[in-house]
Structure formats: C-alpha cells, structure tokens
Simulated scan of single mutants.
Amino acid sequence: MNSRQQGSGALIAVIILLLMSAMLLNATRQQAEDALSLVADERIWFQQASLAESALNWGRQRQWPEGEAGWQCQIESFFRWRACLLIEQERVLLKGDSGAGTLAFYQWVSRVTGTGKLLAQPHGWLDYCPYTEEKRCFSDE
C-alpha cells in the first residue's frame, strides 16, 4: 500500500462525524427555537386570561345603569380592563377582556333591580362566546 492513502479513511470518517454533529446541532437549535416560541405563546395566553378574569370580576362589582338592550361597556382606568354588559330581553351576559382583540371570558349574570348590581348565575362562567353569530359576541369595539 501507498503510505499516502493510509490516512484518507480516517479523514473521511472524521468529516462524516463532523457533518453529522453539525446536523444534530442544527436540529437541536431548531427544536429549542420552536419550544421557546411555544412558551412565549403560552405566556401571552396566561397574561390575557388573567386580565380577562380580573376584568370579569371587576365588572361584576361595578354599578351598571338601567339601560336599553345592547352592549354597555366600562373601562378601568389604571389596568385598562374592559367589562361589557349585553342585555337581551331576559338574558344578561357580562364580558371581560383587556381590550379589543384580546382573550375574553363571559359570565351569565342577573341584575338586582334598582341597585345596578349584578349577580353571577350558577355555572354561568364561559371561556367562549355562547352565541353562534360572531357579531353578537363583540361590543362596539
């Protein structure tokens, strides 16, 4: 055998090992980026869910004027929570969110006559709009 050809097999093996290592590192980096994106999305969801729940609770404690059917909204000045009340005949729906385009929670409530106060209906909490028509789920945003 020629002495020049003895190291070529080892060199090829090292190059293949380096290429496989580079591909593995790239795949691991991509997986870490995907996981970080998922964590960021979950963080945003939890923040919006917390704000929506706070807005819903805040809205239940507010004084609501006697009014006509339709949406009435109140905005908390410091945290910018928004609570909206939808009055439709016998049904009253309270919506809490942290602004247009954010996560919203809903609660079926009843009005205490003459006081402007709201009472939460048992099992009336919803994390989705109960109406099939999407336009009924939004106040005049």
Rank of each mutant, 00 (worst) to 15 (best):
E68L: 14
K95H: 02
R80P: 03
G9W: 15
V39T: 14
G99D: 09
T132E: 15
S77V: 09
G116Y: 02
L51W: 05
G96W: 03
C84L: 03
I75C: 04
G124H: 03
M1A: 13
R62H: 03
Q72R: 13
G70P: 12
D41P: 00
W64L: 04
S37I: 04
S54L: 11
C73N: 09
G9N: 13
S98G: 15
S77I: 02
K95P: 02
G101K: 06
N2M: 13
D41R: 14
L119P: 00
L24D: 09
M20S: 14
G101N: 11
L36T: 12
F138D: 08
Q72D: 09
G116K: 02
L18E: 06
D97E: 14
E141P: 06
R62F: 00
I44H: 06
Q61I: 00
Y128P: 00
P65W: 04
F79V: 11
S98E: 04
E134T: 10
G70R: 15
E134Y: 04
I44R: 14
L118I: 07
A49N: 03
W64C: 09
Q107W: 06
P130E: 02
Q6P: 00
D97Q: 09
L94F: 01
M20T: 11
F105S: 00
I87S: 15
W81P: 00
G70E: 12
T132A: 08
W71N: 06
W64P: 04
N26A: 14
G124A: 08
M23A: 15
G116I: 08
F138A: 12
R82N: 00
A83Y: 02
W71H: 12
L93F: 04
S139I: 00
Q121A: 12
